[in-house]
Nucleic acid binder design. Sequence first.
DNA 1: ACAAACCTTGACGTGCGCGTTAACGTTGCT
DNA 2: AGCAACGTTAACGCGCACGTCAAGGTTTGT
Lengths: 159, 159
Amino acid sequence: MTDTLATGYLQIGEAADRAQLTQRTLRYYEEKGLLAPPTRMEGGFRLYSPEDIERIDRIRQMKDLLGFSLAEIKDMIEADDVRLQMRAEWRTDADAAEKAAKVRRAREATLQQIAMLDTKMEKMAEMRRTLAERVEKFDVRLKQWEADAPAPAVSVATS
Amino acid sequence: MTDTLATGYLQIGEAADRAQLTQRTLRYYEEKGLLAPPTRMEGGFRLYSPEDIERIDRIRQMKDLLGFSLAEIKDMIEADDVRLQMRAEWRTDADAAEKAAKVRRAREATLQQIAMLDTKMEKMAEMRRTLAERVEKFDVRLKQWEADAPAPAVSVATS
DNA sequence: ACAAACCTTGACGTGCGCGTTAACGTTGCT
DNA sequence: AGCAACGTTAACGCGCACGTCAAGGTTTGT
């Protein structure tokens, strides 16, 4: 229960608990290159920075939401790498326009992710419409069969 | 290339092609109870009705869109069963209010599916917002580093 | 100094969602 | 009747995403 060096760094147990994942999963993600190797204590214990924690949460989010493979997710979070590097390593502007190119690529990748989110959401909206129609047809059938309903009608927004 | 009995019935090959799945996958879905055993020709060849085809497509849609397990999808399409039964077996109203109960359960299930779609879409919208913000931050960084951009700015809707 | 809690790296096991032969039967056309 | 195209079941295999020991090292509190 120690706060792990007073800073926001966490050992793998706490990190796993907070992300609703297991330690095994975090190590596995590291193996697969989804997570950068975190810093370690002298004894070898992993120490996850707040940025690491943030990234872990984003991975879980993408996994739960989109249902992609880890390989696909790995590709998608390259943009995330750049963003996290911007936070830390950025005043170390040794090389010049090379980083700008990186940022541009990250920008493009993010735009593509937005586009794919849009198409997914559009398809889900379509699915929602057909489901709502279906509910209304059920309602019609039910009112057709019986005059009095035990539960009052619950309205469903039709698009 | 024969039209398979002039009606809309399809053999497994054609059915698989249209749904962008393999024959193996269709048989597997049948094994797992996602697909009802279709009618057969005298020799044992599977014949999928238009309703079967429709259902196959819905399963694929759900798999691609939601990223659920087949077991979860199986639960979700119980409501679909009722709907398809309404089309065919429904003038055979031998038992009375028992079917009404079925319809009510299907209705409830469909409502729950709509609710889960809504929460998923909300989360995706949130993700979209953070991605859009991220793009803008990239843009700021880029304009900060260079005065002229080779590609003109592409606007991203902010929520 | 010692124990309890926490961590480490292997390495093997597991469930899912199919892919892939193998061996064989059916259909449709000529 | 024969052949190509299409289908059948059964069984084994495989990659993914971890779960689950095993055997040992580290940290922390007392």
